[in-house]
Design a binder for these strands. Structure first.
Lengths: 345, 345
DNA sequence: TTGTAAGCGTTATCAT
DNA sequence: ATGATAACGCTTACAA
């Protein structure tokens, strides 16, 4: 680690440690002359303050923990990228953790973060009640917690996400408008958001007087390997196809399922959009490179990241007792980007 | 932060702080009886040691810094995912930074990491000499640095990457074997790896007695937005097409260029693989969902991550002077995954 | 087996 | 404007 300490500088300059500290921190109490001398000496000897000592004294680390399900989805990667940029802009660093959509990993990650000492935590929980007790305890006793992305969670704190019901409704409506009414909903099993996205789907069908068919809802186990997910998708799709219900559209409620679906359909020689239209949640940057260019429900990740981070910083810097604060839930607008996969002429 | 301190426990149990510390750390000096009592009390009062104090005392943070160019490429995301898993398995946490392929950001990130106090740094530098002085200084004076992915860099330390010359050679060879000999090389401008990957391409052409045509090397400025990259790609490709040189294959030397290329070709109505075959570097998990399924040069990210991390931990835990160590450069094997984009029947 | 005391490198308080 | 001193919460010789 760094070699010369503040004490050492004090000795060498025949000044006291406190004077050095103040000089380096530009205190008004110190004369310009002394400041100049001290700073120059520090620079020459490549002084780097020991952050740990500072943090111990100040009681904060300037680190915030970010706990995401899995960085390997473009959506999560975008979130992390923007969170990082916002954090840096505010002189905070990000300690990154992923839960891999497993409650046990999530618990471990949370323990690590608190034992490690972070000033606050941003989390997209595995599901609607995962580690609720632990997270509540951390929020009360350790450091503030802000929820993002997966915000349907019974914790009294700031939450930033999207209106899942509404955006799924709108996407479903797009399909209906191009006269595709036999719509499959592709869902992640045991995922918090599934419930709400399905509700939007149901509501749209109802409003357009389209009968619900439970066989049209496909659940895929999400915590498996990608290969297994492909297999399950293939099975479900071909079963559906053979059963004679002849769906003509699919709405994918998660990014992974939506993007993998395209590969599965290609290998089954099912044509998109001719045989079946596809729209789905995804923030993938190369939607145009997919087969075919994918119509997506796009989430405003940059805004989600900066808003969530700002709210967390507010909590970190707030003097108020955490029970005195009135917490907000912010729902951001999504946008629907139509491309070839729903282009029905 | 946590409420009860070790001192406090000592007071309440009428023992000394050192006894408590030893008891909690299972020291052989402490009687079982006392240990039991102390631990039980600690548990009941939800004692959490202050990590900062501990780290100050011990002089290490158990954090390592990871500095990647940009998390929004599937390859980087994979690396980070596996780095995280390896780190957790070794009780280390990851502080994540990205350089966005800008030297200035890289410098800032490095400064932050050292000021922040990390036990070691893993970095994929922006280019072959970016921040060389700073990184050398950090490696010598602050904490060990290990290079990965982009390892052609004049720093004496462990390096983990792939053999870019060889793997590009093999990919080019695949194209030649299916009789596509007028091959465009698509390169990132001012990117460290470009040089070596091009060398592999050149060597393959030479070995198969195919004349090199400089017009077949396309450079795209990498530090731009994706839209701009698409534009530039479109221009370059259509110019090439019009000029009558009629290429029949493209090799993409970076993931971003390769994947975006597919979108551009689709919009130009150029058929892959009929009109032109495509192969390129990419670790994208849904290569099968691309238009068409993309033949890729796949890098062993999991191995790269765990190897790099292990080497870094070795350096962190090594008692030796850093100049006494003989550093290794490890080149991992890539694999070529052929899919439809090079399937010429 | 347990306790005492020093110290890690800062910053903050209060004198001078 | 500068300095002395205490403190942050823990670990670790060394003493008892």
């Amino acid at each position: 680690m760094a070699k010369i300490t503040l004490k050492e500088i004090a000795k060498r300059l025949h000044l006291s440690p406190s004077t050095i500290s103040k000089a380096l921190n530009d205190s008004y109490e110190i004369s310009e002359e002394t400041k100049k001398k001290v700073k120059q000496f520090a620079q020459q000897h490549n002084y780097q303050p020991n952050p740990l000592a500072k943090y111990l004294k100040l009681g904060k680390t300037n680190n915030i923990g970010v706990l995401l399900p899995n960085i390997q989805s473009p959506f999560s990667a975008q979130l992390l990228q923007y969170l990082h940029q916002s954090a840096i802009a505010n002189s905070y660093n990000i300690i990154f953790m992923q839960s891999m959509d497993h409650e046990k990993d999530e618990e471990r990650a949370l323990m690590t973060l608190t034992n490690q000492g972070v000033d606050g935590i941003l989390i997209a929980p595995v599901h609607e009640t995962s580690n609720l007790e632990l997270i509540s305890k951390i929020h009360q006793e350790n450091c503030p917690v802000v929820l993002f992305d997966r915000i349907h969670y019974n914790l009294d704190t700031h939450k930033v996400g999207i209106d899942n019901i509404k955006s799924t409704y709108l996407a479903t409506e797009e399909l209906i408008k191009v006269n595709r009414k036999n719509i499959i909903a592709l869902c992640g099993k045991d995922i918090g958001i599934t419930h709400h996205r399905l509700e939007g789907y149901r509501k749209a069908l109802e409003d357009y007087n389209i009968p619900m068919n439970d066989a049209n809802i496909i659940y895929i186990d999400y915590s498996k390997t990608l290969n297994k997910i492909d297999e399950d998708l293939t099975k479900s799709i071909s079963r559906c196809w053979r059963s004679g219900c002849t769906p003509n559209a699919i709405i994918g409620t998660t990014e992974t399922l939506t993007t993998r679906l395209l590969g599965v359909l290609a290998s089954l020689k099912i044509q998109v959009p001719e045989d079946i239209a596809v729209i789905g949640y995804s923030n993938i940057e190369f939607a145009n490179s997919l087969n075919p260019a994918l119509s997506t429900i796009y989430q405003p990740t940059e805004e989600m990241a900066s808003t969530a981070l700002q709210l967390l910083l507010d909590l970190i810097n707030s003097k108020k007792d955490r029970s005195q604060i009135d917490f907000q839930t912010i729902l951001l607008e999504t946008s629907i980007q139509l491309r070839k996969s729903t282009a029905l002429t």
